[in-house]
Structure formats: structure tokens, C-alpha cells
Computed example of a mutant assay.
Amino acid sequence: MKTKKVWFVTGASKGLGLSLVQKLLAAGYRVAATSRTVAGLEEKIGKASNEFLPLEMNITDNEDVKKVIAKTVAHFGQLDVVVNNAGYGLIGSLEELSDAEVKEQFDVNVFGSLNVIRNAAPYLRAQQSGHFFNIASIGGYTGGFPGFGIYCATKFAVAGFTEALAEEMKDFGVHATVVYPGYFRTEFLSGGSIKVPANPIDAYKSTRAGEELHLNEINGKQSGDPDKAADVMIEVSEMQAPPVHLFLGQDAHDVARQKIGIIQTDLNKHEALAAATAFAEN
């Protein structure tokens, strides 16, 4: 009987990460799960065993990430699927967010994921198989959400480097998928997963209204079931030719198609003007 794959999931103490780990263990996979503290993982999932390894990890510390991934391989003897799920949301207009606030957002959502990729890739490349799932957001495909510009920028970055990763790793039999979830009923809009600007500017009335809509009206009423999202990701992980782009939820598909339509309209409307930039032929 073929040994079940080993998954490495960051940000696993709540939300999609927690649902995914629980689904994986129920299906017989072996899982290393990381969070800022082990206690939360043990409380919600269980103690370390032959099938489960809870790990404390500082995703912004490259050396710590390297050590944790090495522990995973030492414990299970292999590493097959890596899920970059750890992250948080930062809301606020571009003007009111400080340099430090923006850098912290990129440190976790972008550079943290790159730390994981950098240190997991040698194992997958050596065994000539594996799969990276990098969790973005539908906000990583369209940025038209006032007050979420920096968060969207980090998720656009995740989408961009995943596309490159897919090309870089394909010669080694390793896949990469960027996941764009729509609205799922998790703790993302509450429970410490959202940070607000230290110095808000009163003039941004419409931006505040958009933020309040997400925090007070959408939160708790999201249509997406994280357990079903986990099922989809597991199914995709077993595909021979998995997609590079995975939009999770009907709302994510609807928003993506709307963005594609806007781009197509702009391309067609301004092509003659914008394409007339080549050197004139003699």
C-alpha cells in the first residue's frame, strides 16, 4: 500500500488551515502544522504522533522556518505538499498606513511564504515530486476593495510568484497552485486576523464604510464553507495536472470574470492608441 503524502500547513490553528488539517488527518494523510504557538494546535487538533506534528514557527524568520521544515522531514521521512496559508489582513487607505505597518504586512504575507518556499523546495526538487499551494485571496486578482489595497497588494505578489514558481519547478515534477478564496466563514474578519491603521484619517468616509461592511455585515455571513474548500484542495493535490490558478467559491469566480471583462474592454478600447508605440519601419 502506497504511503500517504506528508503535508506541511502554515497558519493551521484556525480558519481554512485548521479545516484543511482536520480533513487531511481524517483522510489518512500525515500532517505537520505550524502556528505561532503549539498550544493552540494541540488543543484543537491533538498531540504529536506518527500522523500529526504540531510545530511553533516564526514565519518571518528564515532560519526558524528552515529548522521547522527539517524537523518535519526528520519526523516523517519526506515532504510532499506545502500549503502557505499563514497571514493576516491589514485594512486602511494607502495614505493612512505607515511604512512600518505596510512592511509588517509584506513580511508575513509575502516574505513569510517565500521563506517556506525557499526551504521546502530543495526537498521536493530532490525527490522530483511535490506540490505548493499558496493561499492568496480573490483580492489577489482584483484590488478594487477600498481600504484593502495593501492586503490586496500582498496577495497579488503571492499570485505573481506562484506563476513563476510553477514554471521554475515543472522540470522537477513539482506543481504550484495559487488559491484565490472568496468569502469563507472563518475567523479572518475577526479573532486577531485583521489589523487597522494606528493613525486613521477622518476624511476617508467611503473607505471606512467599506471596511465596516466587511467587519460588521459580511463577517459571519460568508457563503463559503471552509471544510468544503479543504476537500477541493485535497482533490486538486491528487490530480496529475493540477491548475496553477484555483478560484475557490462561486463568488470568487464571479469577481474574477468581472475583472476579466474590465480588462478585455480596456484592451479593445485602447489597443490602437497603446500599441502604436513601436519604432516606425523604414
Results as ranks from 00 to 15, higher is better:
residue 73 V to I: 14
residue 48 A to Q: 15
residue 130 G to R: 01
residue 183 Y to I: 02
residue 115 N to S: 10
residue 281 E to C: 10
residue 59 I to K: 04
residue 252 A to D: 05
residue 194 I to W: 10
residue 269 K to V: 05
residue 264 Q to L: 10
residue 230 A to N: 05
residue 199 N to A: 11
residue 191 G to N: 15
residue 107 D to P: 08
residue 123 Y to P: 00
residue 39 A to Y: 07
residue 60 T to N: 07
residue 6 V to I: 15
residue 187 E to V: 09
residue 208 R to I: 00
residue 235 E to R: 13
residue 9 V to Q: 02
residue 150 I to N: 06
residue 252 A to C: 07
residue 6 V to N: 00
residue 180 Y to S: 03
residue 8 F to N: 02
residue 175 H to A: 05
residue 109 N to Q: 10
residue 254 D to F: 08
residue 119 N to R: 06
residue 103 K to F: 10
residue 217 E to V: 15
residue 44 K to T: 11
residue 33 A to P: 06
residue 149 G to F: 04
residue 33 A to S: 12
residue 181 P to A: 10
residue 85 N to T: 03
residue 74 A to P: 01
residue 101 E to N: 10
residue 145 F to W: 12
residue 167 E to G: 04
residue 172 F to H: 02
residue 181 P to V: 02
residue 67 K to N: 14
residue 83 V to P: 03
residue 104 E to F: 07
residue 35 S to V: 04
residue 232 V to E: 10
residue 67 K to P: 00
residue 17 G to L: 03
residue 64 D to H: 14
residue 18 L to R: 12
residue 71 K to C: 10
residue 231 D to R: 00
residue 111 F to C: 09
residue 223 S to C: 01
residue 1 M to L: 12
residue 170 K to Q: 11
residue 147 G to V: 09
residue 265 T to L: 08
residue 272 A to E: 15
residue 63 E to R: 13
residue 58 N to T: 14
residue 106 F to M: 14
residue 120 A to H: 01
residue 217 E to C: 05
residue 114 L to R: 02
residue 84 N to F: 12
residue 85 N to I: 04
residue 112 G to R: 01
residue 275 A to L: 13
residue 271 E to S: 12
residue 39 A to H: 12
residue 202 D to A: 15
residue 129 S to M: 01
residue 260 I to K: 05
residue 143 G to L: 03
residue 19 S to L: 05
residue 203 A to N: 05
residue 22 Q to F: 00
residue 62 N to G: 02
residue 254 D to S: 12
residue 143 G to F: 03
residue 197 P to Y: 09
residue 195 K to D: 07
residue 44 K to N: 15
residue 231 D to A: 13
residue 201 I to S: 05
residue 19 S to I: 09
residue 47 K to F: 13
residue 70 A to I: 10
residue 256 A to T: 09
residue 102 V to C: 14
residue 140 G to C: 11
residue 224 G to I: 00
residue 25 L to G: 05
residue 103 K to P: 03
residue 69 I to K: 00
residue 230 A to P: 02
residue 93 S to W: 05
residue 133 F to R: 00
residue 183 Y to F: 14
residue 90 L to D: 02
residue 95 E to H: 11
residue 282 N to T: 12
residue 26 A to W: 07
residue 153 A to Q: 07
residue 53 L to H: 03
residue 9 V to C: 07
residue 160 G to M: 13
residue 251 D to P: 04
residue 218 I to E: 08
residue 219 N to Q: 12
residue 242 P to I: 08
residue 129 S to E: 03
residue 91 I to N: 07
residue 139 G to A: 15
residue 135 I to L: 12
residue 223 S to A: 13
residue 7 W to Q: 01
residue 215 L to Q: 11
residue 77 G to A: 06
residue 110 V to N: 06
residue 131 H to R: 06
residue 223 S to P: 00
residue 179 V to S: 01
residue 275 A to P: 01
residue 27 A to Q: 13
